[in-house]
Amino acid sequence: MIEIEHLSKFFDETCVVDDVSMTIPGGALAVIVGTSGSGKTTLLRMINRLVEPSSGRILIDGKDISAIPPHELRRQIGYAIQGHGLFPHRTVGQNIATVPHLLGWDAAKVSARVEELLDLFQLDAAEFRDRYPSQLSGGQQQRVGVARALAAAPKLLLMDEPFGALDPIIRARAQEDLRQIQQRLGTTIVLVTHDMNEAIHLGDRIAVMDRAKLLQYDTPQEIVIRPATEFVGELLGSGERPFRLLSLQPLRPYIEPGEAPGAALDVDASLRDALEEALWSGRAAVPVRDGAGKTLGRVTLATAIRQAARPQ
């Protein structure tokens, strides 16, 4: 659990983070979203003490981080940044092994861990371990960057626009990978982005920042339904709000018994997918099936439309 208490940061005379307080529960994926210059990156960088706060404090699992020497703190916290920051003179394996080496793990353990992580990120160890970063594609570099951040199995992972440099298709894959990996490892993640789509797609909790202030810190649903300020509403894009709301709702609670024509949707899809599918194929309802291919029932267009309305 991360507790941020009345945190402020001044650079010279300008305030970049203004009295921010928030609590991130253990195992959650919290997204800090805001425009550039909103102070979101500075807030993130104060969590691993790359920036020292001017006032306020941060507790990780109840311990004040200002009492931990910065480099020791950072070795316990994963850190992945935009453009990945891989060390160009070290191979993929050596890059991933950075923190384990700093922590003094023995060679066999490091080597096993590198293999495990490459495997986790679907990179063939034999093929990639001895390559240099310049020999990888952008998506591969990004995966290695995250693998490096996770190398010492940190309980907390900080990510600064980790997908910023990727093209849309690879980005969607990377986001999916991240969610799965987080669910599997139970790592607490704090991720900074300027992309509200990404925030809603990934976050358990979303913190919206603007001009150094924390405007709203809530679940994605609450943010979409009840934006705290006009600015938060703008960030969501007023024309897209019903669709964002639908995208946050899984199909399962809305399945009703009955038949429907045409191709079936997977049960893991969202109401938004159902709406799109129904509208595009001109159907009033679409069938839903589970992972094994067994039909569970159908979701109607009417249900989807009803659920798109703002809850009162």
Binding site: N48, Y79, G83, H84, G85
Partner: peptide, 18 residues
């Protein structure tokens, strides 16, 4: 040495000497 790489090195917990 690119700022990204410097930043990443600090972020991984290297001391100034390292």
């Amino acid at each position: 040495v690119s700022p990204d790489v410097q930043e990443a090195a600090r972020g991984t917990g290297m001391t100034d000497g390292q």
